[in-house]
Design a protein around this nucleic acid. Sequence first.
DNA 1: CGTCCACGTCTAC
DNA 2: TAGACCTGGACGG
Length: 412
Amino acid sequence: MPEGPELHMASRFVNRVCCGLVFSGSVEKSAVSKNTEVPFQCEAYIISAQSRGKEVKLTLTPVKVEDVSPSATDGKAGSPGQMDIIFRFGMSGSFELAAVEEIPKHAHLRFLTRRCPRQVLCFVDPRRFGSWAVNGSWQPARGPCVMLEYEMFRQNVLTHLSDNAFNKPICEVLLNQKYFNGIGNYLRAEILHRLKVPPFERARTVLEASLHKEPTDELTLSKKVKMKLENPDILELCHLLPMEVINLGGKGYISDRTDGSSAFAAWLRCYDVSGMQTLRDANGRTIWFQGIPGPMAPKGSRTPKSKSQKKTKLEEDEKHSVANEGHTAKKRKRKVEQQRSPAVPEDGPQRNGQNTKAAAGEQEAEKPEEAQGTRRRSERNRRKPAAELLPMSETPAESGRRKTRAMKSRKK
DNA sequence: CGTCCACGTCTAC
DNA sequence: TAGACCTGGACGG
């Protein structure tokens, strides 16, 4: 679910559904979660939320049992017994409100209401990359929120342009949360696409162009405003695009993007859009773009197809079963067979094997059992270093379709 | 069945 | 700068 917009919408969701709810008791953590217990216990408390970039803060505020009026729930910071919990969502975190009888799978932290019908606010996170910290504050290494602290965000970038961080390609820097707190993989693609900025152009180069657009005195105020509205620079887009997603009113990425009918899917112009190109950046993340990749593009890196791409390709294959160059398909995929440099494998030891018995007992999942000690399972999915697994005799086309995640490990 | 892919950090060489 | 950390959906054989 989670880039800045989804985190922000999650905080609004919590404030909306918890308005008027009184919670009680202790906070339950699933047995499987490796995150810390939340040592909070209270007869009656309320929950409110705030977001900043890719974090959400829940505030638990004790209230008098007999007084649940809004005035009592206005909880200033520092109310006695108050607790803040900072959440990061990883790849799959979200908040849900459910009836106690219907607690969703993967609900790793649970807040129970005091009165019937008993309900539960759940932090749900299937992949468990998410985390929370008790009585912490916003992660200090993260910069200002691109959505809610725009001016600070902008200044933070512009005053640190000499930082070595900006030597990297712009598409990678946009994921640096020290400067772009809230931007994630789909937002970086959309931002760069709107400006037609090559993703692997050096970040400082791109941003200095932005700096030059700072208001100049020759223009009247209204003209400056007009220009800004019509030609937002990259830092403005880092604010405006997340705001657009928020204003779609859906749940952002979470809503079923693949069915193409959601407002969010329609909003995307580049990310996961048929016809766009993809590459892996230096961190192995897929960057979606159109046009030239830019001077700092990694050599010989390519991404396999996304779900939607595969789907499209399948449809086309059916249409073109006669093997001609039909022109019916509107959404023709670019079938760049980006000539890759041939895999240069030292044929090392064949280490494939490696099938550890994936433990049978797997069901334990979210039961409050001990549940630890099932880490054997993950070995099945582990990415192989793979470079040495490439047969040298492979055709370029075939090797081109191979997983390239490991390729970055190949010293070019 | 197996492989690949996904909205993100983290930390260990 | 590689993995590690996870589950689950879509595909391919």
